[in-house]
Design a protein around this nucleic acid. Structure first.
Lengths: 246, 246
DNA sequence: GCAATAGTGTCTCTAAGACAGTATCAC
DNA sequence: GTGATACTGTCTTAGAGACACTATTGC
């Protein structure tokens, strides 16, 4: 048996990330069935006979979160196929998808909404998640961190029109760093086709109103948005110029 | 039926890349069974009941190419699950893996070696491949191209000890560009933990012998090896300094 | 006016690219 | 010596980062 072709069922699981109140958050659902009943899990569902896994992911995205997958960033993270990852038989393997959403309210009265809620990624990594969803979450967050450097997914975290401060918050929250405001502004406005000005402005009540932008057509960021290096590396260098006090 | 959980079988397919005679090559096998009998295909095989897909990939790698997967770069490319990708029933989905190999001779008398051969990627992309293997090949090559920038997979194309010229050839062949020899030399020797000198030299008969290196411990290239930009982008800029003819 | 946020100018430093020049081999 | 390949030095320039400075709002 084990030396033969295995017959399996396949699920698509979703890591839906957003930013709420300055925190990177992930959508979790409470499991209503065995196995792992009662534990938080990533939303997902079974592949049907007439669809691809991308279609499964989009369908589940709509059912579980009410979000429209066609307007969302959606990307495959990878397959998880360890033989003991799911106690059910026949065995279940899963394909994880990363989805990026703006901060939208969840439809709590949804058809399939079994206690869906936003959890901060920091909290979710402390908790015990069902199956290998802890590992999947870690991989997806790492993928998002990497992709922010080279691809134009940052605007996917924002609403249709956004300010440069909001875009900067995406990088700061996902990377857990602080970025220089003036340099970030210059960098993103000069990056070809990354963001395009709409001509409108938005006032937050305090200070000068910020210009509004939309996502541009570029898929890649060239040159990339460099993630600040670990201070460990800079520590190795000596300062070349020394300020002289008179 | 189609609205229910689908029962599927799963394969792991391998895109094994190497460089031979200055050309990027991929290992293909001629299909001996229906469907697509006689057409070239990527090597691969079915997931067994007691293994993960990574284990399937390693097993097939050993069987089809005689290469030892433990010493090879192996990475998931993605899942291909379109309902009509395989005419068999129950349906078959596949997970593709990218493997990088040095230029080694293939064991032609292998147990499972059904007409395995190296094909240039350029040729393979012209031919009709079985299933959706043309698409898989394209995705894997694109992944390899991207990863060369940020990860230390280039030495995987070389034998255990290699010269900097051999390492440079990897980049030039995979990217299809020419790189400046002096600048490349400086870049890779100064990149921390990318390559380490062995102290030995190798003479090619012509010219000064080259120092030999091994792969270092780093997994990431920091700063990245930047891929030369399209000339199209530079065309958009005006030269800021103009040479004056007297 | 002041506080607050948005955005610009400018300097410094790193690192990439161009390319001249030097080193070490076979013959 | 010549020819070939390996490697180093140096100049130029693009781009990242630091940070002073200006602009535009609410009050």
């Amino acid at each position: 048996m084990s030396r033969q072709r295995a017959t399996v069922t396949v699920t698509a699981d979703l890591v839906i990330l957003t930013i709420r109140a300055g925190q990177l958050c992930v959508l979790t659902v409470e499991r209503g069935n065995e196995p792992f009943v009662g534990l938080p899990a990533l939303p997902g569902g079974f592949l049907r006979g007439d669809e691809s896994l991308e279609e499964t992911a989009c369908r589940e995205l709509a059912e579980e979160s009410g979000l429209d997958a066609t307007s969302l960033y959606l990307q495959q993270v990878g397959v998880y196929s360890a033989p003991d990852r799911d106690p059910r038989s026949p065995r279940v393997i899963t394909c994880a998808y990363l989805a990026i959403a703006p901060n939208l309210p969840l439809p709590q009265a949804g058809s399939d909404a079994r206690a869906a809620r936003w959890t901060t990624v920091a909290d979710a990594r402390q908790e015990q998640l069902a199956f290998d969803h802890g590992r999947i979450l870690a991989d997806a967050v790492e993928l998002a961190r990497d992709q922010l450097q080279f691809r134009t997914l940052a605007p996917s975290f924002c609403r249709h029109e956004f300010t440069i401060a909001e875009l900067r918050e995406v990088y700061e929250v996902v990377w857990g760093v602080e970025l220089d405001k003036p340099n970030f502004h210059r960098k993103v406005t000069e990056s070809p086709e990354f963001i395009v000005p709409t001509g409108r402005k938005r006032s937050t009540g305090n200070g000068r109103p910020a210009a509004l932008y939309r996502a541009g057509r570029a898929a890649e960021l060239a040159p990339p948005m460099m993630r600040p290096r670990r201070p460990a590396l800079q520590q190795a260098r000596r300062p070349l110029t020394v300020k002289i006090r008179e």
